[in-house]
């Protein structure tokens, strides 16, 4: 089979449908295509980021609980960008600042530790969930944009019918097909975006819960240190 660039509308070639469309519909289609590309870029990069973060947190927490000397461990992981490591760094940083002066307030130190680590968790979740709002926007808006293109295209083909005084299906069908193609692209962009948004939102919640657990455990051990 020799691949030929299909430019007839009957073969459902996207190029042909795009070329035949009105300028407004063309713009809609281009915008939706870019939205789709962006969606997938976010999906790919975010999936990779989340996978790395989860795996890194696993390893970090395992290393942390196995470590004999917390100070030495901190020296090694001082600049680690992992979420768990950031929470750990924030806790140690606050611990050192609070315990540096002689007459320290134990209760105040505990509260400060909890607050700093919670802030660190929130910051990490914020950083990871940076692009998810884009997915949500594309997922909810793309079908409407596609629908706009379709409505515009159908309006245009109806005026074509009116001007040609001919209502046979062969006159009406191509215009409507090219108009519906706009909705098709809209759905093509929106469906992965919505699925990815839900999935990543769930993943992010899991990560947050996990960081909170880690922070609580770490806080408990620091608080035990304070009593002694």
């Amino acid at each position: 089979m020799t691949p030929i660039l299909a430019t007839d509308a009957t073969s459902l070639s996207p190029i042909a449908l795009f070329l035949q469309a009105d300028i407004v519909v063309k713009l809609v289609m281009l915008g939706l295509l870019l939205a789709s590309i962006w969606t997938w870029a976010i999906i790919i990069s975010h999936a990779r980021k989340m996978r790395l973060a989860m795996r890194g947190c696993d390893r970090f927490e395992q290393d942390f609980w196995n470590a004999e000397d917390t100070n030495a461990f901190y020296q090694v992981h001082k600049d680690d960008p992992l979420p768990s490591a950031r929470v750990f760094q924030a806790g140690i940083f606050e611990w050192r600042r609070s315990t540096s002066n002689r007459n320290m307030d134990r209760e105040g130190t505990r509260q400060r530790l909890a607050t700093t680590m919670n802030t660190a968790i929130a910051a990490e979740v914020d950083r990871l969930g940076d692009r998810l709002n884009i997915l949500a926007t594309i997922g909810s808006v793309a079908p409407f944009v596609g629908l706009f293109g379709t409505v515009w295209g159908i309006m245009r083909s109806f005026t074509a019918i009116a001007s040609q005084q001919n209502t046979s299906l062969s006159v009406v069908a191509p215009g409507i097909a090219e108009a519906l193609f706009a909705t098709a692209i809209g759905l093509f962009a929106a469906i992965p975006a919505v699925i990815a948004y839900n999935r990543f939102g769930h993943g992010l919640n899991r990560l947050e819960a996990r960081l909170t657990r880690f922070a609580d455990s770490f806080h408990a051990s620091l608080s035990r240190e304070l009593e002694s």
């Binding site: 590309i37 969606t39 997938w40 870029a41 976010i42 999906i43 790919i44 990069s45 990779r48 980021k49």
Partner: peptide, 14 residues
């Protein structure tokens, strides 16, 4: 860099 790679990948796929 990771995002740029992902963008290139998505564009290529499309």
């Amino acid at each position: 860099r990771a995002e740029r790679t992902a963008l290139a990948l998505a564009g290529f796929g499309h």
